[in-house]
Structure formats: C-alpha cells, structure tokens
Design a protein around this nucleic acid. Structure first.
Lengths: 212, 212, 212, 212
DNA sequence: CATGAATGAGCATTCATTCAT
DNA sequence: TATGAATGAATGCTCATTCAT
C-alpha cells in the first residue's frame, strides 16, 4: 500500500493553503458544504476564485482536506486517555480537554457535526475504522477500571458518547446555549460553569448526598 | 390578538401538504436548508415541482411551516416536567421522553440541529423568547428541589443542556453512534442501553459505590 | 367573404365578458401585454382563472377582443370630422373630442399606445388598411379647406398626427404631466388648461399678435 | 457628498457593457421591461446569459443603467433653451432638436415612453424633482417673453408638453405614422415634412392669413 | 502565480394553459 | 358553469469550474 506521493510545497504555497483552509473552515462550519460557495471562501481568504482553485482543485478538495486535518486533532484528547493514574482524574481530564476544544475550536466542532448530521458521506470509513478501533480500545481500559471497582460499572461506550455530547454541545449549539442563558450567564463564564457542572455530573450524579 | 385568518383547506390539500412536509423533513434534515432542493422534495413527495409550489409558495415557506410544527412537539417534554412528585422520578421521566423522541423523531431532531448549527437564522426569536422563558421557569423548579436537599445542588441550566445533549446525540449523531457500536451493539437495543446508562449517570455519576 | 359566425350569448355570458374585459383593460394598460398576468386579470374581475378562460380561450384572445373594441371607439371622433360647417369649428370640435377621450378613457389610450410602441404586431393590417383609408379621406377634406383658403395651407396628415399626439399625451404621459405640473396645476383643471392651450395653438400659433 | 466609488473597468468590460446596453436598448424599447428577457438581450449582444450577468448583476441593473444614461441626453435640448436671442428662433430650435432626437434616437424615446406608460415606477423621483425644476425654470423664461409681448400669451407648461408630444410622436408612434403615410410619403422625407409642419403650426396656427 | 472572462448545469419561481370533477 | 389541481415551458439568477492571458 503505497501512500500518495507527498507533494513538495514551497513556504508560500503552504501559507496560502493555510489561509484558504482557515477561511473555508469559517464558511463551511457556518453554512454547511452545500450552503458554502467558493466565492465566499475566496473572499474570506482574500484572493481570487481561480487563484484559490490553483491551490485546491475543487470545493470538494478543500472540504476533504479540512476534514482530514480536523480528525487528527479531534481524536487527540481521547488518545491521551490513559490507563496510568487515577480513573476519575483521567476521565475528568478528558472531559476538560474536550470542553476546551469546544471553547477554542467551535468551528471545527461544527464542521464535524455538519458532516455527521448529513450522514457522514465523506468520513464513514474513518468512523467504522479508526474511530471505532480507538473507542473500543479505550472502552476496554474503562471496563478494566469498572471490573476493579475503581469507578461505577456502566456502559463505557455510552459513557464516551455522553462525554462527546455534553462537551460538543457548547460548540455546536452555542447560539442556543447563549440565548437560553441570557446575556449575564451566557458570557465568557459559561464554559467554567459548564466545566464545574459536568465534573459534578460525571462524578456524583444528581442523587442527594445521603444523610448520615 | 387576532391570529392570521386560518386558511380553509380541502381534504386533498391537507393530505398533500402532509405528504410534502413529510418529504421535506426527510430532505431538509439530511441536507440542510441550502443543500435541499425543491426537486428532491417534490420527487420524494411524488409530485411535480410546480404542483408542490401550488401547496407551499416557496422553499422557505415549507421550511418555516416544518420548523413551526416541530417546535411545539419539541418543547412538550420539558413542559411536562412538573413540581409535583419525586424530583428524581420527574427528571428520569424527562430524560426518557427525550430519548424516545430521539428514537422516534430523529429527522425532527436533525432538522432542529441543522437550524441551530447555522446560527438559528429562523428561530432566534423563539430561542430568546419562548424557550428561554420555559427553561428559566423549569430551572426555578429544579432549584427549589436543590434548596430542599432533594437533589444534589448544581447548575440547573447546564443540567438541562446536558439532558438535551446526551439524548439528542442519539438522533443527530446516529451514524457515528452506530458506526462505533458496530453491528451487534448498534442494533435496536442501543436505545435501551443508552436509557440505562443515562439513568445511571444522572442518578449516581461514576464514582464507585463507597464501600459500606 | 363570410364573417365568422357570430356566437349567440346569454345575458350572463355577456356581462361576465364585459367584467373580464374591463379588468383586462386595467391590467393590460398598466403593465403591457407581457407584463400582465391572467391571475391579475382574474383577480380584478373577481373570478377564478379557469373560469375566466372559459369565456376567453387565451390571454391573447382577451387582448385581441379588447383592441378590436377599442378601435371602433378610437376612430369615432375622426369619422365625425365633416365637410359641412366651418373648418375651424370642425377641427376645434375634433380636438375637444379627442381630449375628452384622453380624459375619460385613459386606459384605452394607453392600451393603444402600448400596442403601437411594441410595433403594432396585432393591428398592423388595420393601421395600413382601415386607418390609412380614413385618414386619407379626411386629409382630402382638409386639403379642400386649404385650397379654398379657409384654413392655412399645410400638411393635413401631419396636422392629424399633431392632434393625436397633443391630446393623447394627456392620457399616455399622464404621470409625467402631473409630476411636472405639481399638485396645484396638476389637478382636475389640467384638462381645461390643456383645452384652452390647444385651441390657441391650433388657431393662432405663437407668433405675437401683430401690432396695428 | 461622496459619489459611489467609480468602478475601475478594463477595456473589455467597457466595450462589452456598451454592447450589452445597446442590445438591451433594442429589446427593452420594443418589449418593455417585463416583456424583455435576459436571453433576448444576451442573444442580441452575442454572448451567453451568465456572461452577460457577469457584467450587469441583474435585468433591473441593466435597465436602470440604461435609463440613467438616457435621462442626461433626454433633457439636454430643453436645457439649451435660452433667454438670449429671439424667442421664436429659440423655440424653433428646440422643436428642431427634439425632432432630430426622435429621428436619431427612437429607441431611447420608446424606452422612455414605456417607462412613463407603466407609471414611471423607476423614475418618478426624477420627474418630480429634476424635470419639474427644469421645466418650471424654462416656463419662467417663456412667460417673460409673453409678458414682453414677444410671443402670444398662453400656458408655457402646456406649450412644452405640446412640443414633447408632437416631436416624440414620430419616434414612439413611428409604425403608425409610416402605416398612415404609406410608402411614398412615409419614407425618409417624413421628418422634413414634420419639421415644416410643426414650424408652421407653432408659428402661425391654422387660421387662414387674414385678407389684407 | 494570478486573475479577468466565460460557461454548462442547476435552481427557485412564475405563468399560460389544461384536466378532472 | 365553476373551480381545485396539475404541468410544461419559461425566466431570472447562481455557482463550480475552466479558459486564456
């Protein structure tokens, strides 16, 4: 299996490609693939449309590149989840890292959400391959913790889903979150509030501390 | 307050409108507003494009109608959350109802997610108005429970977000969920697994049951 | 040459046809043939589109009927121009009648103007036939007056054009006339002002009354 | 008062825009705004529809540009009417210039007529503003001549209307004029005949030269 | 590399007309 | 007669992509 020849690129080429990808991330994450136009991306990247298409041969190409780069970043936090150390600390760390990503890379999160919502036409293989493998692996680790009685026994796959869901929610549904919280609560502090809440939730749940 | 004159409709009109809305729900929830074409919707509804436009005067009109209908259904589960009865039972009931909606109305969930992802251009007023009011109201109820020590003290708004996020995830990210779970775990049983997991999570969290 | 069999019509049919023609006159005279829609006409006539098309088999048909009816009225004033009586009285009468038509039937005037502007695609034969014959005939009468020294010698055809132009202007260019005259001068009195002016113009022209 | 930034244009752009405007003048003046199609214009300009829309962003845009250019030319003859010199010479000059415009720019005249006939939706402000001001100003000059006894006293506004009407008639109603005059009289000489007639009319009217 | 110009395919919407009842 | 329903053929406009320089 020979990988496609990695194209040599000058520094200028690389810089321009980065500018385009950044602009495209803006546009795709806000309007979806079909809703985005090359004109918008070119405009946002400060170059002409044909020039943009000199660096990426099609709209599809930009999108694919974007998603591929995203995926590496996307899985990093989970990869770091480790068997070494205290389980609750590990999980808390994972939740925190995911929430920081929602805060710092909301466009990436929305791009990903868009892709999945539309049936993941472009990344299905990766979901069934790389992602599943990674999750299965980490689920085993978690299962180990459960068997050892170090965390409560429950379904590790759904645990991972719930971490994804609760953290990405702050990126993907950001407008709703801010609308509901209102101007006061919905300011920059919302991520800290969320962090505190999620730590509580995943640690103790809602049952009242039993008397005694 | 005079509502807009309710248009009289023949039986055929009502039936066809229903067929169109159903088809449009398919298409919009999968491709988003911009990605959907009237041709696709007409095709899915089994009629010609101009005929479809005889029933709805524009693509926008279909979408608006769809979203408006959705919103009523969408808020129903939260409205049912009640001060009467045991707090944990109430919350469990709410989570269950939301999860059932994710299972039974995934298209509606995705339509909603699409709208929010794109910045909620068409429903922002509703988010800041009706939805915020409703959530604030329910948050007060939950706060009451916390003050009374009937559930653990935490942020009620973020609690509601976490319920939304974890349940809707099974509709919006369905392809990913099934890809990761694989054919065996990802079958119809996944919703029951999720229900069991979420009940545990929200009740007790992950901390191991303290020895005696 | 057998004329097309004249269709027998009930009174109701006739009334409806009249209603339609009246509505169509409104719409065609304002928007032109292409700019007018059957929907607008049906709406203005207070009936459904298919019902309207029961009485006239096409948009073209309505328009043709309208123009044909118009033509009879249109030529009537000129037909009345007569060899009997004083020439200046005759011409003054003709100008007055034409100006009254511009005042009382502006829609008809505009319909006609629209048709001519677009190259008279539907009435060219009538222009080259009936109209030319009539004008030639009246021009002979006027020429007679000139030969007899009863009015100044000039070109009778262009004389007729100038009467058409100056009078129809008050219907066809009405918005411009009113805009330029302003609210005060542009009120209902504008037709009397026009009548007085035209009488002067055609009688005496602008040369100052010679001293003596 | 900052004018909208004047767009820099390449030579090709300028040339093509001119070609388009010329084609559009043909089409709009014959069919009116609604009756004209972009396809017709593109065809007449010898280019594809999207290419045409590369130069003008909409049908409306072409029409607006056309009308704006027209207006300057349109008012020029009246602006030249001057207080200096002999009144009758001035007026004769104005009539001649207007008639030359009808002969040399009939499409412009028809475009204008079309616009007015449809209620001047796009140039009403100009009619009530610039045009009214100009006409009022010239009417004052004419009034001065009347007060000085240099031309017969009459209504100067309606005088201007009658000049417009009689001269533009030879452009707007050209097909009718030619149909009525027939092939012989309706040839190129018709404008000279018209000029001679109008000079007579505006100078002396129709009353026979009084004996003695 | 960069960009002005060009285009085929597509898309939302309109409209005259026909069909069925 | 009357009308709700249906449609083929436009029509204005957009957009990804290509061409030429």
């Amino acid at each position: 299996m020979d990988a496609p020849a990695k194209p040599r690129r000058t520094r200028i080429q690389t810089e321009k490609r980065v500018r385009i990808l950044d602009a495209a991330l803006d546009v795709f994450s806000q309007h979806g693939f079909r809703g985005a136009t090359i004109d918008q991306i070119a405009e946002a990247a400060g170059m002409s449309k044909p020039n943009l298409l000199y660096y990426f041969k099609s709209k599809e190409d930009i999108h694919t590149t974007l998603i591929q780069r995203l995926l590496e970043t996307w899985l990093a936090p989970l990869r770091e989840l480790d068997d070494i150390g205290d389980p609750m600390t590990e999980l808390r760390g994972y939740i925190r890292r995911k929430l920081e990503m929602a805060r710092d890379y909301p466009r990436e999160s929305r791009l990903f959400a868009n892709e999945i919502l539309q049936g993941a036409p472009r990344i299905m293989p990766m979901l069934e391959g790389e992602l599943k493998t990674l999750v299965d692996e980490k689920a085993e680790i978690i299962k180990g913790w459960m068997r050892a009685g170090r965390i409560a026994p429950t379904d590790p796959w759904h645990l991972i889903f719930s971490i994804w869901a609760t953290t990405q929610h702050y990126a993907d549904f950001d407008v709703q979150v801010r609308a509901v919280l209102g101007p006061r609560r919905g300011g920059d502090g919302r991520f800290e509030d969320a962090a505190r809440f999620l730590e509580n939730l995943f640690l103790r749940g809602l049952a009242p501390p039993t008397a005694q």
